[in-house]
Design a binder for these strands. Structure first.
Lengths: 242, 242
DNA sequence: CGTCGCTTTGACACCTCTCAAGGGGGGTGG
DNA sequence: CCACCCCCCTTGAGAGGTGTCAAAGCGACG
């Protein structure tokens, strides 16, 4: 059941079979959600975290005037609210963007797990630091990249992150989002996202249509995006220490 | 020497006298730097972290075309590269923005400290999660707020964070940055930052001049910024758990 | 007193937003 | 089986916010 989260963990750390078994034991239940379901609201106190088994989940904030900014997209294998283990209440909301299968993990079981396997704590800590690294790259996109660069960059990032759990290859991947959701990630309007996607398509770089990303020129896409995957710490040595 | 970092820690956690003493012991040396000194470059492997005792430090990335985005400003008491303890190499660069006094902390001493006081690990973890929460709020600013809202928001955030270590009150604080540095935080050009600062001044909200922020109307500033300090977890109960 | 870095201002360009309308495809009910 | 409807995509025209380029002002410092 936890193949994807464990694959993600193994990609960056050495994990013993015993530790893997223990991790499998932390799940209290598995739930399926429809798209557009709010799982937790800003300010809410959480007594559990969740592991995303399938689907896409967004962290986001809504502004007074109705504008919404998504600060992170989670893919299968991610821990969308692991930070709630130390932060306690959330500074943002969390919702499903697609149909999702999630595993619930009570905080007390995480505490127990980390007490029994203290070596796992830095690895979980690493996971939240990785989220922060992705946040930083999004700040760079939002602050300094043009609309087309930003869109290209997001598509590159998702290609790498999905490939890590076997859900993407160089030719593309499933991304069942609409243009409004993309716009909420990119700090753009859906109208402009539409124009940008057309531009990317007409340049022969990538086609986004009916929930699928078909990459026609990965190198070209990376060039436009100025994409450097360093921040994703795919290198296995990334988390070896501590 | 570590009054400010300890004050920051105490603001959100219960820390025993014994733990505080141990934390004091992790510092290997204290160094003073001039402004604009790059302390670590993107991709660099770090064997130590640093605690900022005085001054301002930026995390940033430079793009191919010379544009720069600052993803985080650190104030006295912060741990600007604590995440390097688990990430190992950096996904961004770090530089001083002002004269800075920093304490060096070898990673092995952090390991020792956390081995002796396992209860400290979630508290350190919390610190990096707090950084991530700030990143998220900056993403919201960069993605959805107008230039004036963004500038107002940053000034509000720094007011709260500096007040926590005794360096700000409702009337203002020292912020020895120039308009180019502010622009690099806000995803704007220095020319436009200049116009925005004039606007804020003419509205009677805040005056930024010769390295000082003089707040004339804190409530008005917060209103323009749509500022909600939840994400800063100033509430003492924020980190009680785990 | 000159220099240098930073701030300030103006004019204009351009990217993205806003508002509006039409098009297409899949699902649902008659 | 067809027709309608709803959601989403697509496109156009014009507005507006921010960037670019350029020049002058100002203050600290040598």
């Amino acid at each position: 059941m936890l193949e994807k989260p464990l694959a993600k963990l193994r990609a960056r750390h050495t994990v013993s079979a015993e530790e893997e078994d223990a991790i499998r034991g932390v799940v209290s239940e598995v739930i399926t959600h429809r798209p557009d379901v709010t799982l937790a609201r800003e300010g809410e106190l959480l007594a559990h975290s969740t592991i995303l088994l399938d689907g896409l989940i967004a962290r986001f904030k809504d502004l007074r005037d109705g504008k919404r900014q998504i600060s992170h997209i989670h893919v299968a294998g991610d821990f969308p609210d692991l930070h709630s283990f130390t932060l306690k209440y959330l500074d943002h909301s969390i919702m499903t963007m697609t149909p999702c299968r999630i595993a619930k993990v009570p905080h007390e079981r995480i505490s127990d797990l980390l007490a029994r396997f203290p070596k796992l704590m830095p690895k979980f800590w690493f996971e939240t630091n990785l989220d922060a690294a992705i946040h930083r790259e999004w700040e760079v996109s939002l602050g300094r990249r043009s609309a087309i660069e930003r869109a290209a960059h997001l598509l590159c990032e998702l290609q790498v992150r999905l490939a890590l759990v076997g859900l993407a290859d160089d030719g593309g991947y499933a991304l069942p989002l609409n243009q409004t959701q993309l716009a909420e990630c990119l700090g753009l309007t859906s109208v402009h996202v539409n124009r940008v996607l057309r531009d990317l398509r007409e340049r022969g770089l990538v086609e986004f249509r009916s929930g699928k990303v078909r990459i026609e020129n990965l190198a070209g896409l990376k060039t436009i995006a100025d994409f450097d995957p360093t921040y994703l710490y795919v290198d296995r040595r990334a988390g070896q220490h501590a």
